[in-house]
Design a protein around this nucleic acid. Structure first.
Lengths: 193, 193
DNA sequence: TGTACATCAGTGAACGCGCGTTCACTGATGTAC
DNA sequence: TGTACATCAGTGAACGCGCGTTCACTGATGTAC
């Protein structure tokens, strides 16, 4: 069989590269990801990838972008499923940590490639997904008369707590444990009635 | 000049390797650290290092260990300087984040190489430095009648918050800013009177 | 409907690179007499 | 104090590896006539 060329229809190779890239990130680290390995696994020459991505960095950027979108989607879904408000906030945090645990390398890649969120006002959809989502959720939790500064600090604190829990579990410093995740987030002062 | 051999007295090469390793970690990432670069920089053949470390992994382990000890020392110093108690707790957190920011790659290395702290009771000095320190500090903050489980969750939450803040700043997701660090930690519910 | 042709997604050979590690070696050091 | 010798921290050449990227190429696809 083994047809030599045009094994992929138009646009399919790009998708296959992305899929395989994401798959490999499930099993190893970002630095262990190589163009050649991706190509090998989808049975295509290494150079074929250059038809779709100018270089390796571009592929990583695309993977990070796709990952960020997925994380955003999962957070949103969890939030909506919980019915918004405080339990929406808690659900968002849980989704964040669980995504990190189930997509370790991808999660790290996302964090290390999206820019700082200090980039001024008009939110940068994909880049600032987490920030924006948190900001909205935290607003739902604070007293209505909270100052902007107070709100911001609260956002950072909530994000840091959830992010830290994710990273510590990823690094094996804290044993991953769904119950513990729930306890840390649910009982957090910000989440208490 | 350039004497060819025995440029280092007994034990000095080991120290020089460690120092240069730590220095390189200040400027780049763990994966960018190579035996050969360390050797080059201290003007020694790459193979000389094998007299002191069985392989690269052993060097990384030693660097992680040294880093962990330094972090522990800085936390302890900050704690003592603040006079213990609640402000000691806050100071410890600040020291943790600042250490991370000033020793980015080393901090990551520490976190990724020390084992889980779930390893049973009799604490493993270097490995569990952060945990033990936090545990003591959190105990000083909780009401005396707090349950062990509650205490543990509180420890994890505090650690996660501080660790997350450090990682988010390291990854450029939150702009590093001493004032913000202080606000996030100082005003955290755990640190409030 | 059939044929000529431009396009461009694929190919495989080749490049130079820096890496970790091995090997047989050398020569300064410090000790035993 | 002077000499013979074992030790062992250093050397440089060499290994094989997998990588990202370049290059000139080929041949299937889809369009214009």
């Amino acid at each position: 069989m083994k047809s030599r060329k045009k094994a992929y229809h138009h646009g399919d190779l790009r998708a296959a590269v992305m899929t395989e890239g994401l798959r490999l990130l499930e099993k190893s680290s970002v630095d262990a990801l190589s163009l050649r390995e991706v190509a090998r696994n989808i049975e295509v020459s290494a150079t074929a990838i250059y038809r779709h991505f100018p270089d390796k960095a571009a592929l990583l950027r695309a993977l990070a972008q796709a990952g960020a979108e997925q994380l955003g989607r999962e957070q949103k879904a969890a939030h909506d499923r919980a019915g918004g408000g405080k339990s929406g906030f808690v659900a968002t945090g849980r989704a964040y940590v669980r995504f990190a645990l189930q997509n370790a390398a991808l999660f790290r890649l996302i964090m290390s490639s999206s820019g700082p969120c200090e980039t001024s006002a008009p939110a940068d959809a994909a880049d600032n997904f987490a920030m924006n989502f948190l900001r909205q959720n935290v607003a739902a939790i604070l007293p209505a008369d909270a100052t902007a500064r107070r709100n911001q600090v609260e956002v950072y604190r909530a994000w840091a707590m959830v992010h830290g829990l994710a990273m510590l579990m990823l690094d094996g410093q804290i044993k991953p444990d769904d119950t513990l995740i729930d306890m840390v987030i649910d009982e957090s002062p910000a989440a208490r009635p």
